[in-house]
Amino acid sequence: MSDPENEQNGIAKGGALDKALSGYHVPALSNDFADRVVARSKDRPEPLPSLRKGTSRNRRWSTARRLTVGALAAGALASAAAATGVLGDLPIRLLSPEQIWSSITGDEQESARRPQRLPASDGAEAAEAPETAIEGPIDSSQELEEAFSRIDQARGDRREERRSRVDQRIDETLEQRREQGLPAPTAEQEERLRNRLEQFREKRDATLEERRATTREELRERVENGEELTPRELIREERAGGLRPEARERLEELRELSPEERRERIRQFRERRQERVGQRLRRFTPEERSSIYDDTNDEPINGAAPPIESEQVDQPE
């Protein structure tokens, strides 16, 4: 075993288990194996031509518009937005697991009950209806993988849409400030902050992806062991899969609250966040702060986001 950790935590060399496993010998391939494969290759159809590249809608930063918006997104941090929760302030609804499931499986009856999505800035269409239906509880690996794939598709679309909306708001805000002669970040500040925003996003995405992969492995194992997963269970696991354990607990707790209690929690959360804004601003240079401070005094972008890291909840819509 080449990994040292295998020696430590795995199957000790020379141990009873090692001895038992080492008896698993593999017979040699038959001598005519290559001839058989080559003969079979003659019957294979010619390779298909390469697929055309998809539209650029899902390719971030691939167009001039994206790059421009990206540059201006630096202003998001210029206004300390990303660090202080503007991403969480967007009016993103938390749908019920059933609503999300119906959007994934294409169940029309359920879809009809879905709340209207907020208009996307780029007129993005909702995720296309799936080709095959997933019926009832998930009890096979194929169904589970299909569900993961659809969830990923929906999540990708949603993330693109959300980022596009964030970028657009930042763009508009900066434009307004410049028009009104208010302080705005310099090109250098924008550049620096743009990099920071991108790093922030990449790091966050990687972390979420890692957490989700672990959750999915557990789900795969449950299904492989014969367990059935209900749509509600799958969606809840998926939603919570990207969260830290404490955020996960908070999410569960929030679900149990009445609307009034939830609103109160949101208010308290915003207060705490404003406090954090102040603390973080102290880390900026005086020049940066001069352009940042005014922005943070702007009316926050209001919405019904819950007092959790709603960017992390990242539900597939």
Binding site: G23, Y24, E217, E221, E224
Partner: peptide, 16 residues
């Protein structure tokens, strides 16, 4: 010996 090892491995789920 081979069968014992094979039996051990084959009791695992596919990915394991």
């Amino acid at each position: 010996e081979g069968q014992a090892a094979r039996a051990l491995i084959s009791r695992l789920p596919e990915r394991q």
